[in-house]
């Protein structure tokens, strides 16, 4: 009787795990898992967005004043970079479906480059805040000109949220770079796990688009506060 189970696996897909019947079931399960993970991530960011919304509502004027400290040009540049990286990621997935190894690798590399650009810009942004002593905590001692008339305590709250949320987002970018790097390694080594099946690339893509999604909301919330 047991032999029947062996037979169904005789010519199985190289990436197929033992608990699945076929690669289609495995891919669907992975997609469901990935989506529930992303919903979980949305709730994670939802929590900090709630904190942001409440304090933004309460301290609108001070938030408006202190947000001038953020450089919206850098923010807009980073938004462009991330949007473009989302596009290159989706192109990588596209070529992964077509099993075009070189183009997939190129697009993944492009995505990684965008991610690094994003982090470098972020580094300069953070650096400016540290220089102006705007990092929250005991060392929060900005000069008056950097407060723009905001209540210093609220300014610190704003900076806490800014560093907390964008820091969390940057952490996701760094994890994304690591994952994309591993994926590129797989593609480079022609690992059948990725070359025979588009799904690993698609899942990394989903993660990357999620990171992009978060930034789409962060950009107007932090850099474009209306009066």
């Amino acid at each position: 009787m047991a032999s029947t189970a062996v037979d169904t696996h005789a010519h199985h897909h190289p990436g197929l795990h033992h608990q699945f019947e076929d690669i289609e079931q495995q891919n669907e399960a992975y997609l469901v898992g990935m989506w529930s993970f992303m919903v979980n991530e949305i709730m994670f960011f939802g929590g900090v967005f709630l904190v942001y919304c409440l304090y933004r509502w309460r301290y609108q004027d001070d938030f408006y004043a202190i947000h001038h400290e953020l450089n919206w040009k850098m923010g807009a540049f980073n938004t462009t970079v991330l949007l473009f990286s989302s596009f290159s990621m989706v192109m990588a997935v596209h070529f992964a479906t077509l099993k075009d190894r070189m183009k997939t690798l190129m697009n993944l590399a492009l995505t990684c480059a965008c991610a690094f650009t994003f982090l470098i810009v972020k580094y300069f942004e953070y650096g400016a805040k540290f220089e102006h002593k705007l990092f929250p905590g005991p060392n929060f001692r900005p000069e008056l000109e950097h407060l723009n008339g905001a209540n210093p305590n609220v300014a610190q709250l704003f900076m806490s949220l800014y560093f907390g949320i964008t820091g969390l987002h940057a952490l996701h970018i760094i994890i994304g770079i690591l994952i994309i790097g591993i994926l590129m390694g797989f593609w480079y080594k022609k690992n059948p796990l990725v070359t025979e099946d588009f799904l690993p690339t698609e899942m990394v893509g989903l993660y990357w688009h999620f990171v992009d999604l978060v930034w789409i909301f962060l950009f107007p919330l932090f850099y474009l506060i209306p009066r």
Binding site: F44, G47, V48, P136, S160
Partner: peptide
Amino acid sequence: PVVAITLVLVLFERTFKIG
């Protein structure tokens, strides 16, 4: 995840004294 982020925020507040 909501309680996770809440606890992380408490941890931030406790560690870095941010409000």
